[in-house]
Every structure is written in structure tokens, then in C-alpha cells.
Simulated scan of single mutants.
Amino acid sequence: MARKKIIAGNWKMNMTPSEAVELVNTLKPLVATEDADVVFCVPAIDIIPAMEAAKGSNIHIGAENMYYEESGAYTGEISPKMLTDVGVKYVIIGHSERREYFAETDETVNKKVLKAFEHGITPIVCCGESLTQREQGITIDWIRQQIKIAFLNVTAAQAASSVIAYEPIWAIGTGKVATTEQAQEVCKAIRDCIAEIYDDATAAAIRIQYGGSVSASSASELFSQPDIDGGLVGGAALKPDFGKIVNYK
């Protein structure tokens, strides 16, 4: 069975609640499709108003982060129960910006992935290499390590339902896009890694996105690759052009 594409917007730290409503209303008719799952991962304060604005559309509202404890003295954090209570079904975990600026590690990513599954939330698990790592030829080794630790103690059934986003750090917000061949090579290596951890059926089921300066002009070629099942889109997700990325055919 062919994997359904999943195209997610990562809004990052953009859009006030009122701006979020306006953007969802603008994009609703532009992203209407049955050919792909469409997810807007938005700042925590925007989740509820965005959810209201998206009602009746094909848009799923997701979160950009989540803590791995149920509740407690963790000032400033969002728990999985808070997300599920308002109907969130997706959460980005381990984005390179979270790793770089907020000290997230492979181990905390794994804790968050396990907690998301516990609550029926689909994690979009991020991985990616820096420019130095690519230049030193360790891209595949690095990403295999990230994947293997992120999926520690995750069952095959859980893994099959998850999403992995490959984002070369050197291509995020820089306007540089990995070549189609580079993106496909790494996404295939990720799928091969999942096959090693689990089996071929799990690897065939898991959806792998490419992220990193995805645009309306690059989407079609990237998403037509055999191991790329959509994109995690940053800057372009805040513009009407996101509709062209979703309807890339």
C-alpha cells in the first residue's frame, strides 16, 4: 500500500493568536486535498485558536514541542495531557533548533517520543546533520545514531505509525536546499535503519519527510522520490505558497 504523503508546517516562534486565526483562514482553501495529510504545528499559545479556525477543514493542528512528564513542577512546559485534551494528534520532537538552543539530547528526544505514544500523539521525530558533519562524511552515521536512540523501546507498531523528518541543519532557513539526490540518499538510509531495528514491513510503513528550505518550486521533485513522503516546511508554511507545496503535483 502506498504511503500517504504528510506535509507539515512548522511555524516556529511566529504568529500571535489573532495572526494564527487569520493565517489558517487564508490557507484553508489553499491546502484542501485528500491526497496528503496536512498539519500545522504551531506555538502553544496558538493551538486552541488555530484548532477553532481549522474546524471543518482537512487541517490537523499539531504542537512544536512537549515535555515527557505527565504534570508537575516544570515551569513553562506543556504536558501530553494538555495537548490531547484539546485534540492535538501530532507533535514535533527533537527539532535541531530545540537541540541547539534548549539543550535537547537524543535521550530526551527518546523520552518525549515514548511519552507521545503513551498518549496517542504521533511524533514527528527530527534528525539532521550540520555542515561540518556533512563535509566530514559522517552524515549517515550521525543520523543512524539519532534514529536508533530516538526509537529505543519503541514498538514496531508505534514506529510504523510515526513520522521522521530529515532536516539537514545547514539547509534550515538558509535558502540552501539539499539536492534531490542528497535528500533521497539520507531518507533511504533512515528507512534502512528502521528496517534493521524492526523489519521491512515497519520500514515500508513509516513516513519520512524532508525539511530545509522546501519551496513551491522544489516540492514536486523532492516529494516524488521513493523514500520522501512529504515535507516539514518552515518559512514557506507562513505564506499562501504553502498551498502550492501541499498541492505539489
Score class of each variant (00 low, 15 high):
residue 2 A to N: 14
residue 7 I to P: 10
residue 8 A to V: 02
residue 8 A to S: 12
residue 14 N to D: 10
residue 17 P to K: 08
residue 17 P to S: 09
residue 20 A to P: 09
residue 25 N to S: 11
residue 27 L to E: 08
residue 28 K to N: 10
residue 30 L to Q: 12
residue 30 L to I: 12
residue 34 E to M: 03
residue 35 D to A: 14
residue 38 V to A: 04
residue 39 V to K: 06
residue 41 C to M: 01
residue 45 I to S: 12
residue 45 I to M: 13
residue 46 D to G: 12
residue 46 D to L: 03
residue 47 I to G: 05
residue 48 I to E: 11
residue 49 P to N: 03
residue 52 E to I: 14
residue 56 G to I: 11
residue 59 I to E: 00
residue 61 I to P: 10
residue 69 E to W: 10
residue 70 E to P: 01
residue 71 S to R: 13
residue 71 S to T: 13
residue 75 T to I: 09
residue 75 T to V: 03
residue 75 T to H: 05
residue 77 E to C: 06
residue 79 S to A: 12
residue 91 V to P: 05
residue 94 G to R: 05
residue 100 E to A: 13
residue 105 T to D: 01
residue 107 E to D: 14
residue 108 T to Q: 02
residue 108 T to P: 06
residue 109 V to D: 00
residue 110 N to L: 11
residue 110 N to T: 11
residue 115 K to V: 07
residue 119 H to Q: 05
residue 119 H to F: 15
residue 120 G to Q: 13
residue 121 I to K: 07
residue 122 T to G: 08
residue 123 P to Y: 02
residue 127 C to Y: 06
residue 128 G to S: 08
residue 130 S to K: 08
residue 136 Q to I: 11
residue 139 T to A: 13
residue 140 I to R: 04
residue 141 D to F: 03
residue 146 Q to I: 08
residue 148 K to V: 11
residue 154 V to A: 10
residue 159 A to T: 07
residue 164 I to C: 00
residue 164 I to H: 03
residue 168 P to Y: 10
residue 168 P to I: 09
residue 174 T to D: 10
residue 175 G to F: 06
residue 179 T to Q: 06
residue 179 T to V: 12
residue 182 Q to C: 11
residue 185 E to C: 05
residue 188 K to R: 15
residue 190 I to R: 10
residue 192 D to V: 03
residue 195 A to W: 11
residue 200 D to G: 13
residue 212 G to S: 06
residue 213 S to R: 04
residue 214 V to F: 01
residue 224 S to R: 10
residue 225 Q to K: 12
residue 226 P to Q: 00
residue 231 G to W: 01
residue 233 V to M: 00
residue 237 A to Y: 04
residue 237 A to C: 15
residue 240 P to L: 07
residue 241 D to H: 07
residue 243 G to A: 09
residue 246 V to E: 00
